[in-house]
C-alpha cells in the first residue's frame, strides 16, 4: 500500500498547471498555460511587463480564482482550495511589492510564519513568548538571511533592501515545497542583491523543492535557472533550457525585445 502511494507520488511532477486560464472581462490575462515543474528544478519565468507572470503566480497560490484549467500539487487538485490551505499544502509565495506586517518586529514577522507552520491549534491561553522552539527557529532563519542583528527592529523602520530580505525570509521560514519568488531583488542595491541570490542558490541544492522565479535581470537568470519559460500575452511562448530559449530568434525579437540583450 505504502509503496503504491509512493509510486503515484513519484509519477507526478511536483507542480503542474493544465490549461490554466483567467479572464478579466474580455481580457485573457493567462491563456491556457500548461506546464509542469519538477522537484530540484529552478524555473525562471520571463516575459514583457503585462505578460501575465504575476497573475500566473496569483492563480497558483490562490489570490485570484481561475476561469478554467487545473493546478495540481503532487497530483492533487488544489484549485478549489483557499490561499491558506494551499500554503499549508506547500505552496509558498514571496511578493513583488513588499508585503509584510509593518508595525511588528522583524523577529515577530518570521515567528508568525513559523507559528503558522509548527504550532497546532489556536493557542488561546499560553504565552507566545514561552514557545521557545518557535522563536529559536525564527532566529535561525534570520541568521540565514543576515537579518539577525535587526531582529528587534520594527519592520516599517527597515531599509528597502532589508525589507526585501525579510520578504525572502518569510518564504524560507515557511519551508514550502514550491517556492515562488516574484522579482526578489527588485530595488535592492548592488551589494545587497547577492545575499538573496546566494540564498536562492542554496535552496536550489535542496532537491525536494521546486523554485519558480520571475526575474528580469538576465545575469541572474543565467546563473540560477535550469529552465526558462516565456509568457507573452498570457500564453506560453517558449519553454526550454536557458541557452536554447535565449538563443531562439523568436523569443529574442518578438517577446523579449531589448531585455534579452546582454547587460
Amino acid at each position: 500500500m505504502i509503496s503504491q502511494t509512493r509510486e503515484t507520488e513519484m509519477s507526478h511532477p511536483l507542480l503542474e498547471t493544465e490549461d490554466l486560464t483567467v479572464r478579466f472581462g474580455g481580457h485573457v490575462a493567462v491563456d491556457a498555460v500548461t506546464c509542469a515543474f519538477d522537484a530540484g528544478e529552478l524555473t525562471a519565468i520571463v516575459g514583457p511587463n503585462g505578460a501575465g507572470k504575476t497573475t500566473y503566480f496569483n492563480l497558483i497560490s490562490g489570490q485570484i480564482a481561475a476561469s478554467a484549467g487545473r493546478v495540481r500539487l503532487e497530483g492533487q487538485e488544489i484549485l478549489g482550495l483557499s490561499v491558506a490551505e494551499r500554503c499549508r499544502r506547500g505552496i509558498g509565495r514571496a511578493f513583488q511589492l513588499t508585503n509584510l506586517f509593518p508595525d511588528l518586529s522583524v523577529l515577530e514577522n518570521v515567528r508568525l510564519v513559523i507559528q503558522a507552520h509548527y504550532h497546532n491549534g489556536l493557542g488561546l491561553f499560553s504565552m507566545a513568548d514561552h514557545h521557545r522552539d518557535l522563536i529559536d527557529r525564527a532566529e535561525a532563519v534570520l541568521e540565514r538571511v543576515r537579518l539577525a542583528d535587526l531582529a528587534g527592529q520594527t519592520v516599517s523602520e527597515l531599509s528597502h533592501g532589508n525589507q526585501r530580505k525579510l520578504e525572502v525570509a518569510l518564504l524560507i521560514a515557511l519551508d514550502p515545497k514550491v517556492y515562488m519568488f516574484d522579482e526578489p531583488t527588485a530595488g535592492m542595491s548592488v551589494d545587497e542583491a547577492p545575499v538573496v541570490l546566494d540564498l536562492i542558490a542554496e535552496l536550489k541544492a535542496d532537491t525536494d523543492r521546486t523554485i519558480l522565479l520571475v526575474e528580469h535581470k538576465m545575469d541572474v537568470i543565467r546563473t540560477l535557472a535550469d529552465r526558462i519559460i516565456v509568457l507573452h500575452n498570457g500564453a506560453l511562448a517558449a519553454d526550454g533550457a536557458p541557452a536554447e530559449v535565449m538563443a531562439s530568434d523568436v523569443v529574442q525579437e518578438a517577446y523579449m525585445g531589448r531585455e534579452l540583450e546582454d547587460v
Binding site: Q63, V83, A84, F101, V113, A116, L174
Partner: peptide, 15 residues
C-alpha cells in the same frame, strides 16, 4: 498580524 496585513496572514497559512 491579521490587523496589520490580512492578505499576508492568509498567504502564510492562517485561516
Amino acid at each position: 498580524a491579521i490587523r496589520e496585513n490580512d492578505f499576508r496572514a492568509e498567504a502564510i497559512g492562517y485561516r
